[in-house]
Amino acid sequence: MSGPLASLNVLDFSTLLPGPFASLLLADMGAEVLRIESPTRMDLLRVLPPHDQGTSASHAYLNRNKRSLALDLKQPEALEIVRALVKDYDIVLEQFRPGVMERLGLGYDALKAINPRLIYVSITGYGQTGPYKDRAGHDINYLALAGVASYTGRQDSGPLPLGVQVADVAGGSLHAVVGLLAAVIARQHSGVGQYLDVSMTDCSFSLNAMSGAGYLACGVEPAWENQVLNGGSFYDYYRTRDGRWMSVGSLEPAFMQRLCAAFGRPELAAKGLSLELKTALQIEFEKRSFDELCELFAGVDACVEPVLSLSEAVEHPQLKARELVSQVPRGDGSTQAQLACPLKFSQGLPEPRHIGVAVGAHSDEVLAELGLSVQRIAELRQAEVVG
């Protein structure tokens, strides 16, 4: 089984989370992904705890199914190797600050002269233009500037530092994949590639789907706990008697009626979306333990679900039925449990080949495929061009 993207070859210069998550999706769907890594400047994700048998679990996951070629891009011989690779690759994915690849001689204009069909994707915090294009940032900064943090939080404590990197993944990674696949479709008709400028701040700004629409069209400014879906109504999380939490999303009248009836308080449904209903529900939830509430709502279709830990989520029958955990080969005959690709294709996806590998694990193999002799590869290693 080769996967729907088996025809695509990707040169991945990215590090950390946004680019690697994007190329992970591509690799899971069958694309051939070759990471170009520095032999001297380590991807910090490689040392991020926790570690499994000496390897960062995050790195092992985000870089599964990818090969690694270690090149010192400051050396001319390394740049020649990249230019040779580009002849046979469809996509370049990079995550440097604007201008870095151009200074190396590996910018879009230079590489498309070698391969006009090349699709070149740049993921940055703020994009290739604008006064912030050279400014450093992280997920929390992009969400702050995009307005998302201004209404994601509590009135008494302010914005929340989210546990999931929304700007990196939903902003950078997923938009990059959507954009590059759109460019692949366009290339099927035009025969030429193109450049894709992905800003994590831009994409985070677009995630203001409903609140942004309301502000731009009607001037309604969202703020903490002033909207139906951000804590300004009964749509919220509720503490249980034993300090656990339940989620309530019973917005539609039928669900709201079932929610209130489950507590033996059908009259509460008449309060609608009011905060008065929220106060009444807080009392009802705090009367009962987490286990009691789980049992109470197990057979009630009211959009009420428990807030699970990751260890609980892994064992939940719905997630288990969807096979969201995969056993991925380490290379020594054993396997590592990882998050599986969540996409379900009727023709299936290829089995995971291996976890993320050591820097330069495939250097000799890739260079041999380019036609370099064993002697020449040894010379490049001696000169520290290849790691």
Rank of each mutant, 00 (worst) to 15 (best):
G231N: 13
D52R: 13
I283C: 09
R239A: 13
L160R: 12
V169S: 07
Y132M: 14
S157N: 11
V374W: 02
G3F: 00
Y142I: 02
N226K: 15
L339D: 08
Y215Q: 13
K87N: 00
R35D: 07
A270K: 14
F255Y: 15
A6K: 09
A378H: 04
R35G: 03
F21S: 12
G125K: 07
I283K: 14
A213Q: 10
P116W: 09
A31E: 01
V121I: 13
E267V: 11
Y195T: 00
Y89H: 11
V177F: 04
C260S: 00
D168P: 01
E267F: 07
D242A: 13
S23H: 06
P39C: 05
A78Q: 00
Q128H: 05
E252V: 12
C303F: 08
G30L: 09
L174H: 04
G272S: 10
L268W: 01
F290P: 00
L229V: 10
I119E: 03
A262E: 10
V385Y: 02
G333C: 10
K66Y: 03
S23N: 05
V33N: 01
P4C: 06
A84V: 05
G191M: 06
Q53R: 15
Q75N: 10
S56G: 06
P116C: 11
L85N: 00
P352S: 08
S199T: 02
K271T: 13
V307F: 07
G137P: 07
L293I: 06
A280I: 11
R46H: 04
A302F: 00
L268D: 04
G371V: 04
L71K: 06
V325L: 14
H362P: 01
A361M: 02
A361W: 00
D52C: 13
A110F: 11
V328K: 02
R376S: 06
V357R: 11
